[in-house]
């Protein structure tokens, strides 16, 4: 990597948004190049200064009340309550004259009390969700992040080849396992290449397939006891994930293609492996 490339990718590296291979290359360059290392240090310090120095404008209690009452009003809950007050006010019209401001005070306190009770209800109903996400959810998040990163930093493949006999030996030499690689171009999913990735504290193989304009990342690693063997389908943030395992390996396919395409991709992949 040269200085120009390193400078271009520096922000992504700083924000931890690059794929592991590119990050390693940048790290290597920063070790070798004093100038870029200094630039990176200055850039990191600036980023921290922005995070620390820029004021965070919290919403005032008054705005919270305002938003909540406008929402109430949109639904019409408020109307009946106000109507009751209205009737009361007209009965005690003697009082009504000299309280253009006063009536709002008890209401504000009521609203505040209501807000506190509501906050308590919200907090208590939120508690179950505050539990740490399950390992599967965490994995899904990591998988999507890897998929997005591979498309973003122009780092889809380490070995770009549609030939499974090129991709497989390359992966075999980089990993401590030999992932199955098949070409599915005759079925409409041409192989684009392979990549090393790092997921859940282990090196994994990523095979890249294409469906029309979309890419499918297929992550493969040897099944361990902590991997679930159940077949799952997940949809998150517009991405689909399909998970299966065949005894030896655990597979996760991630893509933005529709779920039917991803399912048939999975079936074709399994059929091809069975044939080999």
């Amino acid at each position: 990597m040269n200085c120009e490339e390193a400078t271009k990718l520096m922000d992504g590296y700083l924000d931890g948004e690059l794929d592991p291979m590119t990050s390693q290359k940048i790290e290597q360059h920063l070790r070798d190049c004093r100038k870029c290392e200094q630039a990176y240090e200055a850039h990191t310090a600036l980023a921290h200064a922005i995070s620390r120095g820029a004021p965070y404008y919290k919403a005032q209690a008054e705005l919270r009340q305002r938003v909540q009452s406008s929402l109430r009003d949109a639904v019409g809950v408020r109307a009946s309550r106000s109507a009751a007050r209205e009737n009361h006010a007209s009965l005690t019209s003697r009082w009504a004259k000299r309280r253009p401001v006063l009536p709002e005070i008890p209401w504000n306190w009521l609203a505040l009390a209501a807000a506190i009770i509501l906050a308590a209800i919200i907090a208590s109903s939120f508690l179950p969700r505050l539990r740490p996400p399950t390992s599967d959810q965490f994995l899904a998040t990591q998988l999507i992040a890897s998929h997005v990163r591979s498309l973003m930093a122009d780092h889809l493949t380490d070995v770009a080849s549609s030939d499974q006999h090129t991709v497989k030996p390359w992966l075999d030499t980089k990993l401590d396992f030999a992932p199955p690689v098949v070409d599915l171009s005759s079925e409409g999913f041409p192989l684009i290449g392979g990549r090393l990735d790092y997921l859940d504290s282990r090196s994994v193989a990523a095979l890249v397939y294409q469906k029309r304009k979309h890419f499918i990342n297929l992550f493969i690693w040897p099944t361990t006891p902590k991997d679930s063997t159940a077949q799952t389908m997940v949809e998150r943030e517009g991405y689909h994930l399909v998970h299966w395992s065949d005894g030896d390996f655990t597979y996760w396919a991630v893509s933005d293609v529709n779920i039917n395409d991803l399912q048939s991709f999975k079936q074709l992949f399994e059929q091809q492996i069975a044939r080999h």
């Binding site: 705005l63 909540q68 109430r72 639904v75 019409g76």
Partner: peptide, 24 residues
């Protein structure tokens, strides 16, 4: 005209639960 509707109130509660924490 604005008779409150139980379904809408329910939706509002669910909306507030999801969205009010993000007002800051």
């Amino acid at each position: 005209h604005q008779e409150p509707d139980a379904a809408q109130e329910h939706e509002l509660a669910s909306f507030e639960e999801t969205m009010l924490p993000h007002m800051d």
